[in-house]
Design a protein around this nucleic acid. Structure first.
Lengths: 256, 256
DNA sequence: GCATGGCGTTGCGGGGGGTGCAACGGGTGG
DNA sequence: CCACCCGTTGCACCCCCCGCAACGCCATGC
């Protein structure tokens, strides 16, 4: 659709006022805002009054200046809860799969396991099948390590105490080596897994952050060990991190 | 000012659309929104298009439905950073001081210590002097315990390892009793301190939450031990919790 | 005390921008 | 194929948005 031809001018002006308040340090007066946006003062005053009626802005009684209102905060909470993680990530996963020519996915924590909620396939026939909706033990896959690396240490300790599956003879199941691995993940900004879930499967993963800076998901790239070799890790990690960062921005995270 | 007489109708309608999207589960279509607000469909479509131009709403390409946009999240971040904690809390502290007839304060974490940023005095001459802008060791005052109780355990462990001041012979400085005390604070929803900072000073404190549910400050009531007796704790704790909850709502927290 | 200048608000009336009507094009289901 | 739903857009009417001018309040300087 053509936005400009159908834009309602007064609504556009009101929205511009909201944005201008978002750019000001704290509060701004009618005179300043009207000068900044090229509006007549009385117009700015009326538009602000209307926004105030709905709680989108508030006015300081003493100074008469306006600031953003609590309704904006409430709306943001609702906006965050409605963001569809899968649809946001798919374009980036597709792009990553094309760039790496491997399978890519988005994983989240679900019932103590790594759940793949989205997947995009590369062009190779020898690859992993559809893993969407399926779980895997956190500690044995790269995306799971990413999620674990942002957990409280006591939660990691608790998981280890309950016992971790020895998926292959390369799976890390002891506390000290696992904590070291998770510290490495935090330091580097990405995780790897070499034959730890399946002997012939390697993977790289990077964290997705939300508006609060919390790690809420992981973007991963995985494939057969003969293609996803240690020599490719720097390239794959870089690409995964870029895709994860792009998804993070879509979730409201501050761009790095 | 009289809001209604000066409200700009189209802006009011656009704001109502934002609020309606905040109330919907995820996304809503033009037809549904227009029916809900009693607007003609074409009007709703144009107002939404205008809000979309400014990023306040987004449209799903496939379904054509609208949802709140990322600019709302960005605005909320700015709204939160502009809220003045002190001015928000003062009315509640004044009210609490009148109700309890003791000194009340608002404390925040500052450089690893409890900093009092606001204070309201009760009517008694024998009381604490102005503590605004001054710090105290976290673990020895009730408000500090509230803040510590929301910290990651590893951060508490780190503080204990560095050594805590033994302010009085009642100050808790060992890890196990301190962790138990902090668990008690979390369970009860308030903290106490009996002669732990000064032998003749007792206090109660309750947590202030922000829009994300994080503990960002503590409301406390303090006074001489001969007035702030154990028998008064239930009453003081209740009053402090109510004041803290009121401040929390002002910071955008969801009312309990 | 008064005058001046700044602020945000409000009455008024003209004209152009917002609105409802009607139609469009696309998608889905039978 | 048709019927129904959706979101979008051209058109023209009319009333609502807007700028002008004034108001009341506050702070400052003489």
């Amino acid at each position: 659709m053509t936005l400009d031809g159908n834009a309602v001018r007064s609504v556009d002006r009101a929205a511009a006022l909201l944005l201008a308040l978002g750019e000001s340090s704290g509060e701004a007066g009618v005179t300043e805002l009207s000068r900044r946006l090229g509006l007549h003062k009385s117009t700015a005053s009326r538009l602000l009054a209307t926004l105030q009626k709905r709680g989108l802005v508030e006015q300081d009684e003493e100074s008469g200046k306006y600031r953003l209102g609590l309704v904006v905060i409430r709306l943001a909470e609702r906006a965050e809860s409605t963001l569809d993680l899968r649809s946001i990530a798919m374009p980036e996963l597709d792009r990553l799969a094309r760039a790496t020519r491997e399978t890519t996915g988005l994983g989240v924590l679900h019932e103590g396991r790594l759940m793949t909620v989205a997947q995009a396939d590369g062009p190779n026939l020898v690859a992993v099948g559809d893993w969407t909706g399926r779980g895997a033990p956190l500690h044995s896959v790269a995306a799971g390590k990413v999620l674990m690396s942002s957990m409280a240490e006591r939660d990691v300790v608790r998981l280890v105490r309950r016992g971790l599956d020895q998926c292959t003879d390369r799976t890390i199941t002891q506390l000290e080596p696992l904590l070291e691995e998770l510290a490495r993940v935090r330091r580097r900004g990405f995780a790897t897994a070499f034959g730890e879930f399946d002997p012939s499967l390697n993977a790289v993963a990077a964290p997705v952050h939300d508006a609060r800076g919390q790690v809420v998901a992981a973007v991963d790239v995985w494939g057969p060990a003969y293609r996803v070799t240690p020599g490719r890790i720097p390239e794959l990690a870089q690409a995964a991190r870029e895709a994860a960062a792009a998804v993070s921005v879509r979730l409201g995270a501050t761009p790095a």
